Amino acid sequence: MPPPEQDLPMLQLEQLSFAYDTQRVVDNWSATLAPGASWLQGPNGCGKSTRLKLLGAVLQPQCGQARLGTLELRRDAQAWRRQTAWVGAEGAPLPHLSPRQLFAFLAGLYGVHDEAHWRDWSATSTALGLTRWLDQALHSLSTGTQRKAALAAALSLDVPLLLLDEPFNALDEQAAAALRQRLQQRHQDAARWTVMASHEDPALSPLQTLQLQA
């Protein structure tokens, strides 16, 4: 039986703001995110990717705060990053590495990982089917295969906060279905969050939707 709702940990966002030069992109963003999946919706230019970068401590908010347990984003940025896995909408991270090397690098960096899970996701028997590409440089692979490698690595890190920017882009139908299944399984643990920006409905349950304005 799940714990009472009031006993669940929360991801608290309090008036987070960020501007590029003089253009305010995120303005006093406040929200309370329960464990599970949260979907950022809104038109292009409303700051979805910037919000994910703030939550991943990739960008530093100019004001406001976020709290995850005892961690505070602005005070504990380095520790916060170690609790967060990030897959951006841009190209593959560290494109000179192979998928195998990428996972090994991230596993060593974070110090927490599930190698058996990564191997399962990378096997030819799964929808991702990365086995034939494991030792090829990411920059030589298709966009879809690069994204599969990044997702497999991020989902195998044992961290509470997972941030995904357009995770279904460049995925075939079978891979997208496998990703949804894995995300659903992830939230059987009551202390994990996935925050994603996606033009495609994540089709997860339960799902908290945050509607953003331009």
Rank of each mutant, 00 (worst) to 15 (best):
G108N: 12
L151C: 06
Q136C: 13
G108S: 06
L40T: 02
T32D: 14
L163G: 00
T131L: 06
R119H: 12
L52S: 01
L162D: 09
S49N: 06
P202D: 01
Q65Y: 07
A175F: 03
T194G: 04
Q185M: 11
P99Y: 02
R100P: 01
A178D: 09
E173Q: 15
K148T: 00
A176Y: 06
R74A: 13
A214T: 11
G64L: 06
A31C: 04
G56F: 03
E5W: 12
F105H: 14
T126Y: 03
M1C: 11
T124H: 12
G144S: 12
P4Y: 09
A31M: 01
A176P: 01
H187R: 01
H187V: 09
R186I: 03
R75M: 08
L171G: 04
D120N: 12
Q185K: 07
R186N: 03
T50F: 09
D120T: 13
H187E: 08
A149T: 10
A149R: 14
L138Q: 03
D165H: 01
L207H: 02
T131M: 09
A127Q: 02
L207F: 02
A191C: 13
L33Y: 04
L151E: 01
A175M: 06
H96Y: 05
S198T: 12
H117N: 11
P206D: 01
D172H: 00
D27Q: 15
A175P: 10
F103V: 03
K148S: 06
Q213A: 13
M1Q: 13
